[in-house]
Computed example of a mutant assay.
Amino acid sequence: MPGQQQRKPTSAINQQPLADFKVGVDNVIFSVDITENRLLVLLVMRQQEPFANYWSLPGTLVRQGESLEDAAYRIMAEKIRVNNLYLEQLYTFGGPKRDPREACDSYGVRYLSVSYFALVRFEDAQLITDGVTGVAWYPVKDVPQLAFDHNEVLNYGNCRLRNKLEYSPVAFDVLPKMFTLNDLYQLYTTVLGENFSDYSNFRARLLKLGFLYDTGVKVSRGAGRPASLYQFDADAFAPFKDKPLVFI
């Protein structure tokens, strides 16, 4: 880009042979448990070295003749059943020594990870546990030390999720078809934190934008007065597509 200086390789790097890579994919799959207001990430327990008995993101090495996207979908199909799963490429992690197997490989093979990201509806996502051990939804705020550099990958995915909530209708993909404004607000506070906006401002801004449709149906929850159920209007949202800070 203009104004940026390109990093010049050092003479030591110039003298090194070209790197030989193995390529893997790692998936950061989020969900929101709106009944308990928890942001969750899908983790698997590793059964072999390196990092045996550590939690990790679902991942796999890419096979001959397989695309990166196909590998990402393959590993997900082994861990979870969900309708209309959408994965988008997140980032490529390729720093030297990110994988302990590099030190054991006499051929100097490097391990590259292309990460993918998704947000799925918690109620519709069925974990595959037959013949598989250690697959679980884990609260993001309680995630332990993960295998490899997966904490870094997870943090990057969490930043992507927070950004997407600001400019895309991704939240409506995980809510029921009809929802209250409080349901939507609780989802945002679960991901962004309780201090991102107060409810009254959030409600007023959304209704002013005009892409939420009041169905005329009301629902009673607890002792309060009945709340209106809304639906997301994709056509009305079209003029706002990719514009930042639409919701907050």
Rank of each mutant, 00 (worst) to 15 (best):
N158Q: 13
P9G: 01
A125Q: 07
R38A: 12
T133H: 04
I128R: 12
V217S: 10
S31P: 04
T180C: 06
E66K: 12
F21I: 08
L165C: 01
T215G: 08
G65D: 06
L68N: 08
E66V: 11
G216P: 10
K97W: 13
G131A: 09
F148D: 04
L161D: 03
F122P: 02
S56T: 13
D149E: 14
L192T: 01
T10I: 00
N53L: 12
A171Q: 11
Q64L: 14
V135W: 04
P139V: 05
M1A: 13
K141Y: 06
L119A: 09
E152L: 14
E66P: 08
Q231Y: 00
W137I: 03
Q126M: 06
Y199P: 00
F117N: 11
V246W: 03
A52G: 00
L184Y: 08
E78C: 02
L85E: 02
R205C: 07
L212M: 09
Q5K: 13
F240E: 02
N14F: 00
C104Q: 15
V219E: 12
L146H: 05
D130H: 03
F202T: 08
K218R: 14
V28N: 02
Y138G: 03
G94T: 03
V132P: 00
A19T: 05
G134Q: 09
A77D: 12
P50G: 10
P9H: 02
A71D: 02
A12R: 08
Q89F: 07
Q48P: 00
V120F: 04
Y107Q: 14
V153P: 01
T10K: 07
A147H: 07
Y54V: 02
T92E: 03
V28Y: 05
L207Q: 06
A238E: 14
E123T: 14
G210H: 06
Y185F: 15
N53V: 05
Y111H: 15
V219P: 00
F122W: 12
S197D: 14
N195C: 09
V217A: 11
G59C: 09
A19Q: 11
I128S: 00
K79V: 14
L229A: 13
A238S: 14
D99K: 06
A12P: 00
F30R: 06
R225K: 15
D99P: 01
N201F: 04
F211I: 03
R81Q: 10
T215E: 02
Q126G: 00
G157D: 08
L146V: 04
G210E: 04
D173N: 15
N182G: 06
F51T: 02
